[in-house]
Design a protein around this nucleic acid. Structure first.
Lengths: 218, 218
DNA sequence: TAATTTCTGGATCGATTAATATGGAAGTCT
DNA sequence: AGACTTCCATATTAATCGATCCAGAAATTA
């Protein structure tokens, strides 16, 4: 769009990165414009508003950027070329590794990015809530696909499986932020997936071997 | 202590109740002094500070009050007169029912009460983090007690069981706040506890009957 | 009644919030 | 070169933040 005129002096992409780190670590409301501008190289208010519009608009950009990068650990959920169980397992293990990493704030931005909000910022909360709902739908679709492929038997305990997985998944944010390591989370995932395996149509004695050679992305 | 002088005109206990509802719904930082004072009957700043000292001191009182009332759903964890599995089950079901109830804000105050915090309020975050750690210790103690009583076999998958339960437990806050009903959470708990049962020393064929006649408190 | 204590309302503190306005320098395009 | 666009830095907006202070009213006890 902007092709003429004086070019911006700060790197917009790096600014988004810096804003992501701040919002991720402290949440939407506690992150002040002063902090944001400082993290972008002490840019002026005018530069900030010209580049991003508002704090909320910046946050929405940050969320999109997060989903397009870190959030890609959940991509297997919608990859229908993967066996459903592997899609779930890759998502869980990838998320565990991402959320517990020390190279950025721990936990998931979508879960904890706006969990404490004033009523006037309810739209921000709704944005993340919608994204979490998308995750639940993805998990549910995997389980239903497994049933359709005759890999899981249809039963009440299979019906509730997506809810268990979603609850555990969202709980990882709290655990990671409280210091749980990736190894511990990974071991928990291995054990949790037993709940999947005991609902398979033909239980294999050595099914647990599957959990070792499934790669983890990112 | 205060026996003479003009008595306070507002009900301090009701004020704590009102503050609990606000902090629970919006979190520590987004809840302003103005809101707090208004919820206590539009009391004056002087009355507020005379009665509570500061916003942070009030929050600490609120947390104690929360733990002594709503938080008592976790009491079974430290009740050694209960069989360990029943202690865990009562805690999970009681928490699910409490967190999903519509008579107060959903979710758990200890999990979401200060999840978005500025660095200067780190002590508030630490207060809740310590309480969460106490919960994890309680869950772990139950599992270890079950092993000591020869009700669970010692194994790697038993070792990780407390972490799975804690992650699920803390995830319930996110699910409840996003609208998951108590019935759904309850069904998920029933299925999750299968992970306990498959690690029992002598697996009973009709173990699942146990999940029906265990009472739920509060 | 007198003395004491603690309440109340209102004004106010400095700091910080997100957002806007202004004026001029800097760089791009024709 | 000249026109144009967009940048930057500095001030400043009104509102709100948590917290403090003071004067006077009110209720207790002696």
């Amino acid at each position: 769009m902007a092709r003429t005129g004086r070019p911006r002096e700060f790197d917009r992409d790096k600014a988004i990165d810096a804003a992501t780190a701040l919002f991720w670590a402290h949440g939407y409301e506690p992150t002040s414009l002063t902090q944001l501008k400082a993290s972008m190289g002490h840019i002026s208010p005018a530069s900030f508003y010209a580049a991003f519009g508002s704090k909320e608009a910046l946050f929405r950009e940050v969320v999109q950027h997060y989903l397009a990068t870190y959030g890609q650990v959940m991509a297997p959920l919608w990859d229908e070329s993967l066996p459903p169980r592997e899609a779930i397992e890759r998502t869980l293990r990838g998320s565990a590794r991402m959320q517990a990493a020390r190279t950025h704030p721990t936990g998931c931005l979508v879960v904890s990015g706006a969990s404490n909000c004033s009523p006037e910022n309810e739209p921000v909360q709704a944005l993340l809530a919608a994204e979490r709902q998308r995750t639940r739908a993805g998990i549910k679709a995997c389980v239903e696909r497994a049933i359709a492929r005759n890999e899981l038997k249809a039963s009440p305990s299979t019906d509730i499986l997506p809810n268990i997985l979603a609850t555990f998944f969202h709980g990882m944010t709290c655990e990671a932020r409280d210091g749980m390591t990736v190894d511990t989370l990974d071991a928990a995932i291995t054990s949790l997936l037993t709940l999947w395996d005991i609902n398979t149509v033909k239980p294999l004695k050595n099914r647990q071997k599957n959990t070792e050679n499934t790669g983890v992305r990112l």
